[in-house]
């Protein structure tokens, strides 16, 4: 829940390791759930059945095979809700990543390529944005805008674009000095073409790594907001909202807070591991990322 942006400073572990199959599988499952959730889920995510309330997971005493992961206090199927929650998480993450990545990369490229005044304006903007911690910022917007997906995406984009902007700026700064850019300039290639043909392909790897890493932290961030009741609003299902609903029953129904927590943790862990692997693969030399 803390600001993830600044952790971009971390240096990676070196060396290339094997493809992280487990992490990739977990992420694939999350994405498949998001895409085909309504066909996969055994029940409707918001269908209540009070007589089945608080059924423990199937392997526990009193569990029922119809509710593999148990039910909540309204008798809603936890498995179906986890699947529905995956959809919300993935949709939000996708929008947030595309928008913050797009905005951040564009500004980062401009700052890095042109330097001078555009660079100092964009750099100051980054400073300003980074001096407002993301959660208080989210609270601010939550109190002036209607809560829901749009608000969550806005806050995430505001927080994360700096992440992309700073790193892309750094990359472009060094790319600019490379021969092929200088040659292109000499050859009279127009600036937009340089951006699209020469700069963009060279930052794509970096963007992919950042996006993979961001996926995990967006999920945690969104869960935090929904946990506070400021993010996704019922009847829409979100993992953070499930945790928030379950916290009152922490002692009587452990599965209500354990299962959504595991879903969040697993997705985030998987995206971090995959992101690390991508980074190592694209650039085995340790570097600032």
């Amino acid at each position: 829940m803390t600001d993830i942006t600044r952790d971009a400073e971390i240096t990676t572990t070196e060396g290339q390791s094997g493809f992280p199959f487990i992490a990739a599988t977990v992420l694939t499952i999350v994405v498949v759930c998001a895409a085909f959730g309504p066909w996969l889920a055994p029940h409707a995510a918001d269908a209540i059945s009070l007589r089945d309330a608080m059924t423990p997971p199937a392997w526990e005493e009193g569990g029922e095979s119809g509710f593999l992961l148990g039910t909540d206090n309204l008798g809603r199927d936890i498995l179906s809700r986890i699947i529905a929650g995956a959809r919300v998480s993935v949709v939000i993450a996708a929008y947030a990543i595309l928008l913050s990545g797009g905005i951040g990369a564009a500004l980062g490229m401009i700052a890095g390529y042109f330097g001078g005044v555009p660079d100092s304006i964009i750099s100051r903007l980054i400073d300003v944005q980074m001096s407002v911690p993301s959660l208080p910022l989210a609270l601010l917007f939550a109190s002036v805008l209607p809560p829901g997906e749009g608000m969550v995406i806005l806050v995430i984009v505001m927080t994360y674009w700096t992440w992309y902007a700073r790193i892309v700026r750094g990359e472009v700064l060094s790319l600019r000095e490379r021969d092929f850019i200088a040659l292109a300039k000499v050859a009279g290639v127009s600036t937009p073409i340089i951006f699209i043909r020469h700069l963009t392909p060279n930052i794509l790897n970096t963007m992919l790594v950042l996006a993979t890493l961001q996926f995990g932290s967006v999920i945690v961030f969104e869960a935090g907001l929904s946990f506070l009741g400021l993010g996704i609003q019922p009847p829409q299902v979100s993992w953070g909202g499930m945790l928030s609903d379950g916290r009152n029953f922490i002692e009587v129904a452990w599965w209500l807070i354990t299962i959504p927590g595991i879903a969040i943790m697993a997705s985030c862990l998987a995206s971090n591991i995959l992101g690390d692997w991508l980074r190592d693969t694209f650039d085995p030399v340790r570097r600032q990322l």
Binding site: G216, G224, I257, L269
Partner: peptide
């Protein structure tokens, strides 16, 4: 590494709830 990564992946409020229980 795993321990540290878990910390990054587990939302603090969830860790808090588990600790309370």
């Amino acid at each position: 590494k795993l321990f540290a990564m878990l910390g990054q992946a587990m939302p603090g409020f969830w860790v808090g709830l588990l600790l309370i229980v």
